[in-house]
Design a protein around this nucleic acid. Sequence first.
DNA 1: GATATTAGATATAGCGGATAACAATTATTA
DNA 2: TAATAATTGTTATCCGCTATATCTAATATC
Lengths: 172, 172
Amino acid sequence: MTVSKTAADAARSSRALRREPVDPAGDDSMLQLGELSGLLGYSLKRAQLRVFEDFLRCVAPLQLTPAQFSVLLLLDKNPGRNQTEIANTLGILRPNFVAMLDALESRDLCARMRSTNDRRSHILVLTDRGRAVLARAKKLVANKHEARLIEVLGPANHAALLEMLAKLAQEF
Amino acid sequence: MTVSKTAADAARSSRALRREPVDPAGDDSMLQLGELSGLLGYSLKRAQLRVFEDFLRCVAPLQLTPAQFSVLLLLDKNPGRNQTEIANTLGILRPNFVAMLDALESRDLCARMRSTNDRRSHILVLTDRGRAVLARAKKLVANKHEARLIEVLGPANHAALLEMLAKLAQEF
DNA sequence: GATATTAGATATAGCGGATAACAATTATTA
DNA sequence: TAATAATTGTTATCCGCTATATCTAATATC
């Protein structure tokens, strides 16, 4: 909690937001968004698209999507896990995770190893190349992507935004 | 600006976030998210999915998706506009907007009227039924959906979040 | 040992998003 | 004015992500 100064302060800036027009020659000739500006889901979706776009740009040299990056990150932090565990953690359905892993494995970024305990499951491991790519990706993300976000929002707001989004993603 | 108290404060809570584990028997047996928790895009996407889920639940009686709701809202606030203008404002590509309008029109929520000035374009109008459904939808969204968001986040944080997301959606 | 469960995989359907192309209409300009 | 270009809505089509049912091999349960 404790992100805004006062409720009155927040209400004012919210009203300011609603006081369109705020379309500096963007799409068409200044359509009124109306209560759309106050719809959290609307801004949430548009912001998400922008942020993913920027992510893709920043990590373009490594040809990694946000989802692929998250898989590599998770494999690195959680060695010895199988497909189901990784997929579930990322909210990916097992059937859809197969092709994703195929792609990563075909690029020699990770590998499936049959578990000795349970010969049904595949233990997922990062390859050396996967670790190297992940390391480079982390740097690009931190220095270009997140850095730009922090620059636009300000460090404090960036942290506050992260906190609120995490809250929504969990307790909502 | 001015959303968080201090930078130190924000940094602390951000660190607190990163200090997993934060998986109360959710997916699997407590995988480490690692720097995934600090990735804004990750939380952004997950939060967006949750919020849209809740929107769908709240507006379920009216069978409206977020996108459809936004179209109705825009038509109401911007009478006399054609398909291209509405689609562009919502970031929908014209070809994809056709089927969307077909669906709304088949439910008698809006109608296409050939413009007398430019007989190529279709002026979009809300039907009486469309206006009625929109009015009911607005109430559901405000009283159930947004109300719940405000409850979870707190009014001040809700406004601050909205402000930051709008900023990202625009100047990013 | 028979049955149920689980992990990975395949097939398939659906939706949103993106591009190319077309007919009708309007705008440009030679 | 005639020829050309541009625009509107539309269709067709493709891609990616998501969702469900089903299959097999392997394991767990009874």
